[in-house]
Design a protein around this nucleic acid. Structure first.
Lengths: 177, 177
DNA sequence: TCAATCCTGACGAAATCAGTCGGAATTGCC
DNA sequence: GGCAATTCCGACTGATTTCGTCAGGATTGA
């Protein structure tokens, strides 16, 4: 199964993103009931607590959660779940959304690509970035925290007009013969 | 500058993707003029030729380029540039577009997430994936190959309705104090 | 025949990242 | 006041991934 194509597929989040989002969802469910300790969440989500500690540092730095130290302490959301866009969460956990250095919103990266304004490939990355950001902006923590919501119909007013997407538009990658 | 946040930002392509796309753009510019050798392209794009050889394997396997061996041989596009969507190119180079294993179109991955149908986080990844795919579907190689096209106005009928995107919707990640 | 090219497989070295560990600081509770 | 539950902080490691290299074989035009 040796293949030179990246194993995990294109444009994937790190597991940091997945764990962090799950963690935030869990916090959203407990919103208003006082702080929740990391041990609790680690148990409930069966994730390693020491690792969660690291993630929460980023979330706290982005003012998404507040912490209360000491016994009976823990973490809670800094804002109501409906006020937290998923783009904030993902950005806090994984850094700026930049499919390519050409296409970063981080001014620190700007000017890194000496081909800017020269190659049109830049346009592609920009488009992809914008698409990702609007998708992430279209959902809040509240949307994900509801215990179980209607299956087919989206409760959201479908902010971004995703195409029907023929579902056959992607081809298999080149892996095995 | 020690930060636990991934250095390269969220949802980034690998450099494999960037090089490969550049390579395809170069091929598109020479479309119809016979095969182009890898050495030529390596020189022109100042990229290591041995590495390009690897990339081209994936592109050939996806039927995006054809090769002619022997002296004066080289590679050329298998289809006209306008018939090659960028989603095909990216998928060939980087594998299926899957922001999370939950959200992959690869049937081989399906069923990997035991939380499917249980957590709604899955919805988020799916939306992101669809957004990425339609962005990539909305551009063809031809769009990128034109030497220089209009700066502000998009020549494309803006297939996907990207939101105006306030440009201030993302916050800085948590890096330095 | 020769030289240019594709083709194949395997290899090395560097970066990155998931996850761990130990201990210090803070605070509720008995 | 002391204990126990917590957050907080910094550094470390081990494994995985990936960029890039290398050597040599197969194919073909001149």
């Amino acid at each position: 199964m040796r293949t030179t194509v990246p194993t995990s597929g294109a444009l994937h989040f790190s597991t940091r993103g997945e764990y962090g989002v799950r963690l935030m969802v869990e916090l959203a469910r407990h919103y208003g009931s006082g702080p929740v300790s990391l041990s609790e969440m680690a148990d409930h989500e069966s994730l390693p607590r020491p690792y969660l500690e690291q993630l929460v540092v980023s979330l706290r730095g982005a003012d998404l959660v507040t912490s209360t130290r000491g016994a009976r302490g823990g973490y809670e959301l800094a804002k109501p779940p409906s006020a937290i866009r998923m783009s904030e969460v993902v950005t806090a956990l994984e850094g700026p959304i930049a499919p390519m250095i050409c296409a970063s919103d981080d001014p620190h990266h700007a000017g890194t690509c000496q081909r800017a304004g020269f190659c049109n490939v830049e346009q592609l990355w920009q488009r992809v970035r914008e698409a990702i950001v609007s998708a992430l902006d279209s959902m809040t923590l509240e949307d994900l925290a509801e215990p179980r919501l209607g299956h087919p119909a989206h409760p959201q007013p479908a902010l971004l007009a995703v195409q029907p997407l023929t579902e056959r538009s992607i081809k298999e990658p080149v892996t095995q013969p």
